[in-house]
Design a protein around this nucleic acid. Sequence first.
DNA 1: TGGTGGCACTCAAGCGCTTTAGTGCCCGAT
DNA 2: ATCGGGCACTAAAGCGCTTGAGTGCCACCA
Lengths: 385, 385
Amino acid sequence: MGVGREGQRRKGAQVTANGPSAKDTAAARRGRARRPTMKDIAQRAGVSESAVSFALNDRPGVSEVTRARVRRVAEQLGWRPSTAARALSGEGAATVGLVLARPAATLGVDSFFLQLISGIQEILSDRGLGLLFQVVEDVTAECAVYRRWWAEHRVDGVLVVDPRTDDPRPALLDELGLPAVVIGALTDERGRTGAGLSQVRADDAGGMAVIVDRLYALGHRRIAHVAGLPSLAHTERRIRSLRVEAGRRGLSDVHSFTTDYSDTEGAAVTRRLLDRGAPPTALIYDNDVMAAAGAAVAAGLGRAVPGDVSVVSWEDSALCRLVRPWLTALSRDTIAFGRLAAGELAALLDGGPARTVQVPLPRLIERESTERARPVPQESRSDDV
Amino acid sequence: MGVGREGQRRKGAQVTANGPSAKDTAAARRGRARRPTMKDIAQRAGVSESAVSFALNDRPGVSEVTRARVRRVAEQLGWRPSTAARALSGEGAATVGLVLARPAATLGVDSFFLQLISGIQEILSDRGLGLLFQVVEDVTAECAVYRRWWAEHRVDGVLVVDPRTDDPRPALLDELGLPAVVIGALTDERGRTGAGLSQVRADDAGGMAVIVDRLYALGHRRIAHVAGLPSLAHTERRIRSLRVEAGRRGLSDVHSFTTDYSDTEGAAVTRRLLDRGAPPTALIYDNDVMAAAGAAVAAGLGRAVPGDVSVVSWEDSALCRLVRPWLTALSRDTIAFGRLAAGELAALLDGGPARTVQVPLPRLIERESTERARPVPQESRSDDV
DNA sequence: TGGTGGCACTCAAGCGCTTTAGTGCCCGAT
DNA sequence: ATCGGGCACTAAAGCGCTTGAGTGCCACCA
């Protein structure tokens, strides 16, 4: 009896609900179907586990016919390597991490992230990599998550979004030895920070140049830029680029104002700007939500868009075609962006070198919210491009 | 020499970059800092590994003073359990999965998912559970992902979204023995499907009743419902509920039309409806994007919103306050929804029973897009509520 | 004084996989 | 005839953790 019980226990999950005592306890639920292991394959194929391992991992040490046989058996059994076991024996967790540091409330206002993630997934799932995802409140918490993931052996690398000025994350990841790719790039100057850190850069300077070029050509001379969070590296970059573009064209009434990306702040800043003595004739918003909110505010103040003021959104989305007038927007292929980033991370995990790649210049989709600036008396337009 | 090398190899990652031959190869990057293991704790605390395990897992078998000592050492060392090792020894992966079956393009139009996820996270991270996330094209691919996750030992349970009519997923998950909670609930009738399957139900019938109640009170008698994907369970439920509510009030000109949730289809259906002989005086849209698109179409056709036609969105978001007129919307606490679902799953993983819980009735936020129906000559309003 | 329990703790196996060090075999070179 | 070497494959250890089966010790009762 004792022996019988032992034997039964040893077989573990193989027991198939023997008897109709089907109490639906949590224990009973576990392992309803049994996962095949390499041992099963080895048995069926009549070789040792090592041989199976060699065969399945394209390692030398088995003949081609054995390799084929093992492969066939594995497929028949529907075998998949246990990531846990793999990770434990040093192969890594076959998972990459992505943490989003955003207060819950401001989440999901823009479509950027889901698109990005969807691009990321395309590449990752091709490579059999999982994506561990986490939303936290701030960067401090984000760093804690990296530490935890690292200590728990959960991820092989991470994708870092929303790079900041004075970002603590690269140093931490370097310390932990976690390969990472920064999406959106740190400051232009420093270049790569530590080995194992790739960057996928959006061309913020280029984007800004595209917008200013166009607005200038349309005769706009007083331009305001309603930017995003001041702590983000790309906000800083866009502001700097705008200043450069303005300087190049001798424009003096060109300014940036930072916000928290919310429709509320976007609206508030817009109201302040339009109430000025010589209000801007063109407004550049760092996201679609603020652009829409800003356009609505302008309309509310009796300013025609684009008659009195042109509006450009730095982010294209369905929203830009849901408000009237339709918003002119800078459109980038966010999905491709995600794909690129994931590709870089995969390369890094394969032992490739850290690189900095740049995504193509975004395109300006001109819709209804921009048009030629109303001629201003005291300024001739002879200095046009 | 041979011995020396062996010894060195055995110590593995403990080697600290001996010598300045710091080639930044992928190999060198691995394990820059060493993760402490239970063995380290055991050594320092002067007990066996088992004792450490007991101590850290609140299991009996160690005295309180030892437990405290072990805990202290663990904390000092910054120890965290390796999920890989845990998973391997049968404890589960401490991870739950969430897969989103949506074509990449239609992703991110609504804010629903990120909000939901953010709520989910709150609970999961409290419990030390990770969230493995995946975006796929369709339900078939989704099922494949479940299979893979299961075989790879990656997740302990999953959160299922977008339940469908004739949903293949519950059966699959049951077969695999993967605990799951369905977010949004399957058809009302069947109730729980298999053990280990909890449901968190949005009250679609209640929501529809709230909307129809209000519209009816405002005098609307011809109501159209621009619904979402016909294959989704909640679409079906809403349509059914509308029919019931209409029947109860003796309304005959009340119909539903399914779409793919896109602004395009929402607009198209709206145009068709408004071009009819006796167009509806009120339109209910199954999401915010279609509501906004529909309102724009109405305006384009010269119908005043809400003067000629009232608009209600079944989903509140920033968008509802970015278009003019502001959209009346059914508002639910999506973050709380996520929290609830994650809580149910956690309970399930703890061995709790499968349950079906219901979230509170959504509230109707009345904004500018609804008002009293224009009185219709051939119909007295004496039968009002 | 010997037995008996319970307590605090250790031993060792095992989870599924990788990997290093063998082992046996056959073939060609000496 | 013998040896070396390459090849196909096996044995076994180890990754970090859990867990059932001990083990030694002490208090307590008969």
